[in-house]
Design a protein around this nucleic acid. Structure first.
Lengths: 207, 207
DNA sequence: GAAAATTTTTACCATTTGGTAAATCCACGA
DNA sequence: TCGTGGATTTACCAAATGGTAAAAATTTTC
């Protein structure tokens, strides 16, 4: 059986892979792909550099692994958008899920933002193969709601862009947001409330 | 006069500084601070690396110079927001100016986004000193409009965040937008129309 | 408990990168 | 046209960086 079953990873392999990926997520999300170094990742993971390269083929593979894992998580909230649900509720719930994700997974949000910002040099293909089909499908769903007069006449594509932009903003531009809000108050769900009002009014059929 | 007047720069100095900064903007906006190299900048500028270091003290100074110059341009559209104008018009025009800037200066938008994404390590102080006062002032203006019942009851801070996020999205996430829109049609002002409708409905007092 | 397999460390290496010193080139005013 | 000061190149350098080979340590298996 010269190449058949990849052999299941040992406990120690599982643990160290997780530790390395978590450390790499910290470093990559903060410094970008080129700004991150294997030494930093190794230090953060509490392992030696050669030991890291025992678990991953190289720097690029670590980055790619992170992006791949992230892609699934990233699409989840949109997958859940249900064509058979109440249109306004479905969209507002989607906004909330996206905002929750930016809150709970800011490192992932920044990792993704950094990759796209640089022209998606590594994840580009998966945008086409994974993201675009889902995007087109959900745009069609929303277009159906518009045509049926269930929500206001709005361009589905740009609606989704606006949802992404406004929700991810709180993770990706956190440094700026923190400065401007004075980060004193528990302004946590002020954003949630604002976005709920904003998209709520936008979808309203009257006026 | 051992240190008084800095002496006015020659034509060749003016030209080369501009050339270098333009090249650096290309490289920094595409690869981030650490991802950019002096060799890349030199190649892009058509100069040798030591020659670049003849005009700037180092890599960091080039980056800082770009960010400083950018800061002014960046704040301009918000400065123009007039407390004495028609509230809805003022805000919608501001959205349009921001969107125009994302269209005309995508490199600058990405440079800024990259810096903030990494925690604003170099421009942080100027967020406090330059951006925050202006932000607070304009928030007060908008809050006044809200209190006077001239626009809907909306949180000024988060309104501005939403405007920044949605407009800059088209520059910062261009790689993604291009994939998802199929970049075929002249979808240039579809975004403008969408944002106009979106923020227009949001500010509407009725309902 | 010894052999086999896996994991970790030590000691490197080639390349890249930001930066410097000094020699050379060149424009331009006297 | 010649000298002078600014502009440019050549030849480097030390540190950092991604990565490797092989020995040593450790765990697992029989």
């Amino acid at each position: 059986m010269p190449d058949g079953v990849p052999k299941k990873p040992s406990r120690i392999q599982m643990r160290n892979r997780r530790v390395i990926l978590d450390a790499a997520l910290n470093v990559f999300s903060q410094h970008g792909y080129r700004g991150a170094t294997l030494d930093q990742i190794a230090a953060e993971a509490g392992l030696s550099k050669p030991n890291i390269l025992y678990y991953f083929q190289g720097k690029e593979q670590i980055h790619l692994t992170l992006l791949s894992q992230l892609m699934e998580t990233w699409l989840d909230p949109l997958v859940e958008l249900d064509a058979d649900g109440d249109p306004k509720t479905e969209i507002l719930d989607y906004v909330q899920r996206k905002l929750d994700m930016a809150r709970d997974l800011p490192r992932e949000s920044r990792l993704f933002a950094g990759e796209i910002l640089q022209g998606a040099p590594r994840i580009g293909p998966r945008l086409e193969s994974d993201l675009k089909p889902l995007f087109d499908q959900k745009c069609a769903v929303i277009a159906g709601w518009v045509k049926a007069g269930k929500i206001a006449d709005i361009d589905p594509q740009h609606l989704i862009f606006s949802i992404w932009a406004t929700t991810q903003h709180y993770a990706d531009f956190e440094a700026q947001v923190t400065v401007l809000l004075g980060n004193a108050t528990g302004s946590n769900d002020t954003a949630s409330q604002h976005l709920r009002v904003m998209f709520g009014k936008m979808l309203c059929v009257n006026n």
